[in-house]
Amino acid sequence: MKRTAAILIGTALLFAGACGSGGDSAIENLPPDEIGHLSTDRLLDIDQFTVSGEMVDDGEEMEVALSYDGEDGHGLLTMGDVELEVLRIGGSSYLRGNEAFWDRELDHVSQAFMETVGDRWIDVTGEPDMEDLTDLADRDAFVDKALELKGEVTAGDTRKIAGVECLELSGGGRLLWVALDDARPIMLGTSGEEGDDLTFGYDDADIPEAPTGDEVARWAS
């Protein structure tokens, strides 16, 4: 309830700032942790957005390109010669990997397996062992994890990123830059030398259609 009230107050301040006569941004008058919550809720209110850049998983860097449209999402992940696509559409979850991905995931992949799977999507709906992968295509799951600022959240300097005036937030070793006008996230990074480096975009998202027929196979856990 306290968070809901703070978000409503923050939203009211944003509208008040937009209708005012100038001066400091409205979000700069809010506590830093509430700005972070407001940014999360702002992103969840946006129907279509994209995320691109680098993520680090267990010390390994991967290139990511994520797109979200309502409850549907699509992601392309590349790590060296490993490529993986994840898709969440109509409440179902799918993934599709190249041979290097399956060889890594299964320790060893047979030629017979690859001949059977090929470039087909694998339906992994309801498979808990695959949730860490398919969560990247789940908008709510991704946003909650990606924008989480742990510990004490502090506000830093303002700077212009891609033509947008932004405020820096930091917490738990993560850095988040949010737009001063409406708190939407613009860029996400880390305070260390290695870590996530992601940029948010708000153009139309390109989501593949749900696979059907021979395009899809069921995962046998």
Rank of each mutant, 00 (worst) to 15 (best):
M130W: 11
E105M: 12
D182A: 12
E168T: 13
V109F: 03
T40C: 08
S39P: 07
L43F: 01
E60H: 08
C166N: 11
A179S: 15
T154R: 15
R42P: 01
R96E: 03
A220P: 00
S221L: 07
A100V: 05
G172T: 14
L149S: 05
G195F: 09
R120G: 03
G189K: 04
E209D: 08
R120E: 03
L44T: 02
L147G: 13
A162T: 08
E168D: 10
I46Y: 09
L44W: 00
E152K: 12
I122P: 05
E85M: 06
G171T: 09
W219F: 14
K145T: 13
G171R: 07
D132F: 14
L149H: 03
E209K: 05
I186P: 11
V51I: 15
V216Y: 02
E131V: 14
T116Q: 12
Q48K: 05
R218Y: 06
L8C: 00
P32V: 10
G97M: 01
L66Q: 07
D132Q: 14
E127L: 15
D135K: 13
C166V: 15
A220F: 08
E99K: 15
G195N: 10
A112L: 10
T125I: 10
D196G: 05
M130E: 12
S191Y: 01
G151E: 09
P208F: 04
P32T: 03
E60W: 01
L180S: 10
D197L: 13
G17C: 02
E61L: 00
E85Q: 13
T40G: 03
E165V: 06
F101D: 08
A155I: 07
M1I: 05
D196Y: 06
V216E: 05
A146M: 08
G151L: 12
A100P: 03
A65F: 08
H37T: 04
G126A: 08
V216T: 12
G118K: 02
T78V: 15
T134I: 15
G91N: 04
L95G: 06
V51P: 00
S39M: 04
L147M: 13
A210H: 03
L44A: 06
T4D: 13
L87F: 07
A100I: 05
I35R: 05
I7F: 09
D144H: 12
E54S: 03
T190A: 08
E215P: 04
D45R: 08
D181T: 11
I122Y: 03
A65I: 01
M187Q: 14
P185N: 14
A183Y: 10
S191E: 15
H108P: 01
E115V: 00
